[in-house]
Nucleic acid binder design. Structure first.
Length: 925
DNA sequence: AGCTGCCCGTAC
DNA sequence: GACGTACGGGCAGCTA
C-alpha cells in the first residue's frame, strides 16, 4: 500500500521554537526552531515514505476569520527570531526533497485534512506528522483499506486507532470536534465552557453521545459548571465549526503531486554547515567545520553556535540514548560477584538507593542499584518483603562488600540528587567519598531557569526517554505501597534503570558543561563540594524546645479567640476570619467599604495593605489583621514545628534544595527554616525555641549588607565604594548623599527612604513601587530616584548595562560565572519582558551573594571537620550561618568562621560579618 | 479524598 | 503593570 506523509510544518516550527533554547549559529542567526524541524524531517525521511509534503500556513484571511473576527486574535505576531528562521527552513525542506504546500487563504490544517482524506479514501496509508491533537478528529475506517494515523515526533506519541484516541482523550475520534468545541482553545482564542477541560468534556460526551446530545440535556447538568455550560450555549455551534478541520478545500493539481525528490546533498551540506548542524552534516559525509584546535579557541565564542545563550542545544537525542537498557536482578552471590568485579574495575559508577520513606533520615534501605556502562544496570534487593518474595542477599553482606568502594575517593560516584543517597547510606553505616558528579546539579548549573531538574524530566529533556516512574511501580496517593512491597521484578525495571539513566544523562550533560569553563567551575568548585556539606547540616538538625512552642501556641490561640469574638460582634454575624473570600464579602458587599486594592486577578483584595487602608473607616479590618497575624504564627510555626521534631534525634532537620532557586540560592523546606519570623516581637519569640543543648551555645554569623556590597562591586560606583570603604551605615550614607546633608543630620525618615531606595534598586523597582513603599507621591519618588542616580551614576550605568547584557546574550551572570537565562527578555508581552528585566537586575547580586555564602560554607565545613565536633553548622539563611558550639569553643568558632566568610570573595569592598551568640537563636542576633 | 489555584504572609 | 528569590497554610473548587 502506498504511503503518504503530511507534515504540519507550522505546528512544528512553533513547537520547536518554544521547546528549544534560543540558539544561534556562528553568525548570530537564530537556529533553535530550525534545528528542531530539521531533526523531525530527517526522522521522517528515515521512514522512507512514497510521497510526502511539508504544509505551512499562508498569510491571509481564512474562512474562520470570516466566521469569527476574534479568531486567533490574541495570538501575538511571530517573534522576530522565529520569523528569521522561516526562509532558511524552506530552503532546507526543499533541499531535503519535500514538496512545500502553502496555499493562500487556507490554513495548513485544512490542506492537510483535505489531502489526507482524499488519499486515504483511495487506499493510501497516510501519516500526519503534527504536534496538534486536533487532527485526531480525522481518524476513521476507510472502505478502500487506506488509513490515517497521527505521529508527534517531538513527544514520540502515535495515534492510529479509535481505541488509541479513546485511551488518550476519553472520547471516540468522531467526538473530538465536540470535545474541542466544549473545551475551547485559548491559543486560537476560541472560548469554550468555563472550567470544562478534557475530563469534563469526555464525561458529558460519554453520557450524551455528542455536542447536540449535551445541548439537548443541558438542564440535567447541575452545579457551577452547569451554569457555565448554559452561559456558553450560544457559542458552541460556532466553536464546533471553528475547530472542525476542513476536508474539502479546493486544491490545484500541483497539490496532488507530492513526490519526494532526491535530496540535494551539496546544498544541504552548505546549509547544515551554515547553521551548525554538525550531526546532520556528518551523516551526509561532510566534515564538521572546526578542527580540534580551532574548537578550543572559539568554544566560548560563537563556533558551536550557542553563543547567545551559552547553552548548548538539546541535541537530537542520540537514538541509542533513548532506548531501554538491559537490567539484572541480583539475588545470589553468583550473580553479585561479576558485578562487584565490574565495580572494582571501573573508574566510576552510578548508583541509586531505594528506601521505604521519603525522609532520608528515617528511611530503611530496601535495595541498591548500580551501573557502570550505559544501557546496563543491576538492582540488588535486600529488603523486599511480601508474600512470595524471592530469597535475597543479606543487606549487611552487600553493604560490607560495597563499603570500600564507596569509601574510596578515587572511585568516582555519579548520582542524581545524591544528597538523599548520602543520607541513607550514612544512616546504614556506609561513608561515601568521591561523590563527584550529580546530574541534577549539572542540569541546574547548565540551565538554572528550567523549572524541573528531577530525573524523569531530565531523561525526557536530554535523552528523549520516558523513564519508569516511582508511581508506576509503587502507585501513588492512598494506593501507594512501601517500596519493600514492590515486586523485585518491578523494582528492578525502575531502580536499575535509574542508575543507568544517570550514566546516560551524565554523558550528555558533562560535555555541555565542559564547553563552558565558567559554568564548569561553578559546578566543580561550588555545587559538588557543597553536597556533603549540606548533607551534614541536614543531618545535624537543630534542637527545638517543643514545650516552649506549645506554650506559645496556647497563648496565640487564646488571643485569636478574643480577636475572633470581637470580629464577630462587630460584623453582627459569624464568618471565617481565615477565608479571604468571606472577609471580602463581609467588608465590601455587606459593609460597603470602598475597594481600594485589587488582587492580581482583579478581585477586591483583603490583604494587609488593603485592610490597613480601611482601618480608619471601620474597626473590623484592624481586628482581622490582628487575628491573621496570630493565626499565621500559630499554624505555620508554633503548631507545625513541634510536629517536625525527629523522634530519633530529638531535633528538627530541614532539607535544603540545592537546585531550588534559579539565582543559585538554596531553598529550605520540611520545615522551611529560612522564613522564621524576626520582625515583630510575637514572631521573634519563636526564635527563642531554637536552642543549644546543655554546655553549648548558638552562634549566628551574618554578612552585613552583602547584596548592596556586591552592587558596589559590580557597578564600581566611586561614591558607593567609598561609603562601604569607610565602614559607615550605608543607608545613612545614602540618605546624606541623596538629601545633601551631613551624616549626623540625616533624619530617621530620610534614612528610611534611603533604605527603601537601596533595596528597591536591587529588585529593579520603579518610581511607582517606591512611592507605594514609602507612602509618598509618585513624582516625589521619581525625584528621589533621580537624585540617587545623580549621586551614584555608576549604579545607573550598571543597571542599564545589565539590561542590555541580558538582551544581547539572553543571560546574566554572577561574579563567579553562574548564569541565569532569561527566557522572557524578548517577550512581546510587556509585563513578561519587564519582569525578565527586573530578574536580570536582581540575579547577579542575589546570585553572587549565594555563591559567596556557599563558598564560605565549604571552607568552614572543612575547618570544622578538623576541630572534632566542637561546633556544628546548623542552618543557612541566605546571608546568615547558624552554628552550635561548645561554650569554650565559641570565640574560636566566631574567629575562624568569620574569617572564612569574609575571605570567601575578594570584592572591591570589604565583606563584613556580624556575630552573635546566646542560649537560643533569638539571643544570638 | 487528593490535587490545584488563589490569596495571603513569612524570610532574605 | 508597577519589587527580586523562595515555602507554606487555609480555602474553595475540581477531579477521581
Amino acid at each position: 500500500m502506498p504511503r503518504l506523509v503530511l507534515i504540519d510544518g507550522s505546528s512544528y516550527l512553533y513547537r520547536a521554537f518554544h521547546a528549544l533554547p534560543p540558539l544561534t549559529n556562528s553568525a548570530g542567526e537564530p537556529t533553535g526552531a530550525l534545528f528542531g524541524v530539521v531533526n523531525m524531517l530527517r526522522a521522517t525521511l528515515a521512514e522512507q515514505p512514497d510521497c510526502a509534503a511539508f504544509v505551512v500556513d499562508a498569510p491571509g484571511k481564512t474562512f474562520r476569520d470570516d466566521l469569527y473576527p476574534e479568531y486567533k486574535a490574541n495570538r501575538s505576531a511571530m517573534p522576530d527570531d522565529l520569523r528569521a528562521q522561516v526562509q532558511p527552513m524552506c530552503e532546507i525542506v526543499q533541499a531535503l526533497g519535500f514538496p512545500i504546500l502553502r496555499i493562500d487563504g487556507v490554513e495548513a490544517d485544512d490542506v492537510i485534512g483535505t489531502l489526507a482524506l482524499e488519499a486515504a479514501r483511495t487506499g493510501t496509508d497516510v501519516t500526519i506528522s503534527t504536534g496538534d491533537k486536533d487532527f485526531a478528529q480525522l481518524l476513521q475506517p476507510f472502505e478502500s483499506g487506506g488509513s490515517i494515523r497521527l505521529i508527534n515526533t517531538m513527544s514520540g506519541s502515535v495515534l492510529d486507532t479509535d481505541d488509541s484516541v479513546m485511551a488518550k482523550f476519553g472520547v471516540h475520534a468522531h467526538q473530538i470536534v465536540d470535545m474541542l468545541a466544549l473545551m475551547g482553545d485559548t491559543v486560537d482564542n476560541v472560548k469554550g465552557v468555563d472550567k470544562c477541560g478534557p475530563k469534563t468534556a469526555a464525561k458529558w460526551l460519554a453520557e450524551y453521545g455528542s455536542l447536540d446530545g449535551v445541548i439537548t440535556n443541558v438542564e440535567k447538568i447541575g452545579g457551577k459548571i452547569g451554569e457555565n455550560l448554559r452561559a456558553a450555549l450560544p457559542r458552541l455551534p460556532l466553536n464546533r465549526e471553528l475547530v472542525t478541520i476542513k476536508t474539502d478545500v479546493a486544491l490545484d493539481s500541483a497539490a496532488h503531486e507530492l513526490n519526494l525528490r532526491p535530496r540535494d546533498v551539496d546544498t544541504l551540506k552548505i546549509l547544515y554547515a551554515r547553521y551548525g548542524f554538525n550531526a546532520a552534516l556528518k551523516e551526509l559525509g561532510g566534515t564538521p567545520p572546526p578542527s580540534a584546535s580551532e574548537r578550543k579557541v572559539s568554544m566560548r565564542g560563537t563556533e558551536a553556535g550557542w553563543a547567545r545563550t551559552g547553552a548548548a542545544p538539546v541535541e537530537p537525542p542520540d537514538e541509542k540514548l533513548g532506548q531501554k537498557g538491559t537490567y539484572e536482578t541480583i539475588l545470589t552471590r553468583e550473580q553479585f560477584a561479576p558485578w562487584l568485579a565490574k565495580l572494582q574495575a571501573a573508574g566510576a559508577f552510578a548508583f541509586d538507593t531505594e528506601t521505604d520513606s521519603l525522609d532520608a533520615l528515617c528511611a530503611n534501605l530496601v535495595g541498591l542499584s548500580i551501573a557502570t556502562e550505559a544501557h546496563a544496570g543491576a538492582y540488588i534487593p535486600f529488603g523486599h518483603d511480601y508474600p512470595g518474595a524471592p530469597a535475597q542477599l543479606p543487606r549487611d553482606e552487600v553493604l560490607d562488600a560495597l563499603r570500600p568502594l564507596f569509601a574510596d575517593a578515587s572511585k568516582k560516584k555519579i548520582g542524581q540528587h545524591g544528597k538523599y543517597d548520602l543520607h541513607v547510606l550514612r544512616c546504614h553505616g556506609v561513608t561515601v567519598h568521591g561523590y563527584d558528579e550529580d546530574t541534577m546539579l549539572e542540569s541546574f548549573v547548565f540551565n538554572a531557569g528550567a523549572s524541573r531538574h528531577d530525573m524523569d524530566s531530565l531523561a525526557k529533556r536530554y535523552l528523549g526517554y520516558d523513564t519508569v516512574r516511582y508511581e508506576d511501580v509503587a502507585g501513588k496517593g492512598a494506593k501507594q505501597i512501601p517500596f519493600s512491597h514492590v515486586s523485585v521484578e518491578d523494582a528492578t525495571r525502575y531502580a536499575a534503570e535509574d542508575a543507568d539513566v544517570v550514566l546516560r544523562l551524565h554523558s550528555v550533560l558533562r560535555p555541555k558543561l565542559a564547553a563552558e569553563p565558567s559554568l564548569d567551575a561553578v559546578y566543580r568548585d561550588i555545587e559538588i563540594p557543597l553536597v556533603p556539606v549540606l548533607e551534614r547540616i541536614e543531618a545535624n538538625g537543630i534542637l527545638v524546645d517543643a514545650a516552649e512552642l506549645r506554650r506559645q501556641s496556647a497563648d496565640l490561640g487564646k488571643r485569636m479567640l478574643e480577636a475572633q469574638q470581637q470580629a464577630i460582634a462587630l460584623a453582627g454575624r459569624t464568618f471565617s476570619l481565615d477565608s479571604p473570600k468571606q472577609v471580602g464579602q463581609l467588608l465590601f458587599d455587606e459593609l460597603k467599604l470602598p475597594v481600594q486594592v485589587k488582587t492580581s486577578t482583579g478581585q477586591p483584595s483583603v490583604n494587609e495593605e488593603a485592610l490597613e487602608a480601611l482601618a480608619d473607616l471601620h474597626e473590623l479590618p484592624k481586628i482581622i489583621l490582628e487575628y491573621r497575624g496570630l493565626a499565621k504564627l500559630r499554624s505555620t510555626y508554633t503548631d507545625k514545628l513541634p510536629d517536625m521534631v525527629n523522634p530519633n534525634t530529638g531535633r528538627v532537620h530541614t532539607s535544603y534544595h540545592q537546585a531550588g532557586a534559579a539565582t543559585g540560592r538554596l531553598a529550605s523546606s520540611d520545615p522551611n527554616l529560612q522564613n522564621i519570623p524576626i520582625r515583630t516581637d510575637d514572631g521573634r519569640r519563636i526564635r527563642k525555641a531554637f536552642i543549644a543543648p546543655e554546655g553549648r551555645r548558638i552562634v549566628a554569623l551574618d554578612y552585613s549588607q552583602i547584596e548592596l556590597r556586591i552592587m558596589a562591586h559590580l557597578s564600581e560606583d566611586p561614591n558607593l565604594l567609598k561609603a562601604f570603604g569607610s565602614g559607615a551605615d550605608i543607608h545613612r550614607a545614602t540618605a546624606a548623599e541623596v538629601f545633601g546633608k551631613a551624616m549626623d543630620d540625616v533624619s530617621n525618615n530620610e534614612r528610611r527612604a534611603a533604605k527603601a531606595i537601596n533595596f528597591g534598586l536591587m529588585y529593579g523597582m520603579s518610581a511607582f513601587g517606591l512611592a507605594k513603599q514609602l507612602g509618598i507621591g509618585r513624582g516625589e519618588a521619581q525625584d528621589y530616584i533621580a537624585l540617587y542616580f545623580s549621586r551614584y551614576p555608576g549604579v545607573r550605568d550598571y543597571m542599564e548595562r545589565t539590561r542590555q547584557d541580558a538582551r544581547d546574550k539572553g543571560f546574566v551572570e554572577t561574579v563567579f560565572g553562574r548564569r541565569l537565562h532569561l527566557e522572557n527578555i524578548h517577550a512581546r508581552n510587556q509585563g513578561l519582558r519587564a519582569g525578565a528585566e527586573r530578574a536580570a537586575i536582581n540575579a547577579p547580586m542575589q546570585g553572587t551573594a549565594a555563591d559567596i555564602v556557599k563558598r564560605a560554607m565549604i571552607q568552614i565545613d572543612r575547618w570544622l571537620a578538623d576541630v572534632g565536633g566542637r561546633a556544628l553548622m546548623l542552618l543557612q539563611v541566605h546571608d546568615e550561618l547558624v552554628f552550635e558550639a561548645d561554650t569554650a569553643f565559641v570565640d574560636d568558632l566566631i574567629a575562624g568562621a568569620t574569617q572564612r566568610m569574609a575571605a570567601a570573595a575578594e570584592l572591591r569592598v570589604p565583606l563584613l560579618v556580624d556575630a552573635g551568640t546566646g542560649a537560643n537563636w533569638d539571643e544570638a542576633h
